[in-house]
Design a protein around this nucleic acid. Structure first.
Lengths: 231, 231
DNA sequence: ATTTTGATTGAACGGTCGTTCGACGTGTCG
DNA sequence: CGACACGTCGAACGACCGTTCAATCAAAAT
């Protein structure tokens, strides 16, 4: 049951090219997560993608451009994910903040492999301004959106806190919780991370968020048993 | 005016060796910050330290061990810094939490160069378990200390929040704020970062922390004009 | 004063990296 | 159907990496 069942098998040339391109980017993500930034070579990437080594320089002019494309892919995936999460109709500002928290710890964007790649790029960003620019551009959009949401909540509830400060606190807390998944995967719990964020929101905006109950002792029947054992 | 004016010039052999060792570690920090993890080579490190290339393999068995020693140096410096900050006598638990916030954004540990190095190591930690272990060991001590402090505050004030959750939130927020210095140095403000943390603390523990006033418009005569323009 | 120890050097080696280039084969289109 | 365009491959190249090693020279020990 191939996906293109209707139009018959043959991949058009342009399509196949794009598929290979995406394979290379996916292989780069895998390689950075598995071998780190320093030891990610075009040899390893092309081997993972099952293509010849020289193909990388054909699709991307250089290794550096492959890395930039990979970072762009990552930011774009993240962007569409949280945007979709808050686009559900009938969601209040508080509901959207809750949706962002859920999205940010969803296994699709928050798993050790992708977090490792994020941190690898961040670690290189000081020496490669291009990365910094790509990240900053994505972050600023996320920050602006979140500030609009906190501003709506503050306005609605008459809270004294600055919306910008509240939003920044939540954003930073999320980034830090990601780091916990990276450095202490054994103790990281998705639900606990969300609870940490919601505790923050409930203490800032008590009339819009409920203070989470104490930890349910790991008996939560969460659909967390994802594929592959890696979280 | 040499430092060792009293005991005359001559460095003992063991002393000189240790000095060189520290120079190499400092050069490694500089190189990772300037060139990133991937492009940090022994050639660049030895050039920065003004020693021959082969000296690195004399003091450290391999490049990898130099990097581990650098990470250990970083964790140790950070550890002594926050420990000293909370050891001032007569400090309440809340006062110690405040002191930790101050310490974590002090230019000595929180500047772009060192943050870049932290993130570089974190980015490689998934592929090099040694880094993960070193970081995890340091983090767990910091986490335990902070949990003791939040537990004391919670006990004293009869708050409902879990001390562990409160501590984790603060730790993660700090890490995330560091990232902001790394990725958006132009908009990062030390005092604003502290204010973000204190807003969190004041909303969780209103009877122990004052909600910070709105931003003083950058007119704070902070002794922030450090050397070199880099923050 | 002489020997010994050990920090430091410069040259050299093997290996691997990113990139280039010509050849091949298959969709694409006149 | 035939000529071309283009995605893919394998081999090759030069550069640079981390490491090794014999030689050096000054501090320490005898």
């Amino acid at each position: 049951m191939p996906q293109r069942a209707a139009t018959a098998q043959p991949l058009k040339r342009a399509e196949k090219k794009e598929v290979t391109r995406q394979q290379l980017i996916a292989a780069t993500v895998d390689s950075i997560a598995a071998s780190g930034f320093a030891e990610t070579t075009l040899h390893k990437v092309s081997a993972r993608a099952n293509v010849s080594r020289s193909l990388v320089n054909f699709h991307f002019e250089s290794k550096e451009q492959l890395l930039v494309a990979t970072l762009r892919h990552l930011t774009e995936e993240y962007r569409t994910f949280w945007m979709k999460a808050i686009s559900r109709p009938g969601l209040s500002a508080a509901g959207k903040l809750n949706a962002i928290v859920d999205a940010d710890f969803h296994p699709q964007v928050c798993n050790r492999k992708k977090i490792a790649v994020w941190y690898a790029f961040w670690g290189e960003s000081k020496s490669r301004p291009t990365y910094m620019e790509v990240c900053a551009r994505a972050d600023s959009e996320f920050a602006r959106t979140m500030e609009e949401l906190t501003a709506a909540v503050v306005g609605d509830g008459g809270y004294a806190v600055s919306p910008a400060v509240a939003a920044k606190g939540l954003r930073c807390m999320i980034d830090g919780l990601w780091l916990e998944l990276l450095l202490a995967p054994a103790t990281f719990e998705r639900e606990a991370a969300k609870r940490t964020c919601r505790t923050y929101l409930a203490s800032l905006f008590p009339r819009h968020f409920d203070m989470p109950a104490a930890a349910a002792p790991a008996a939560v029947p969460e659909a967390q048993a994802a594929a592959g054992g890696e979280r």
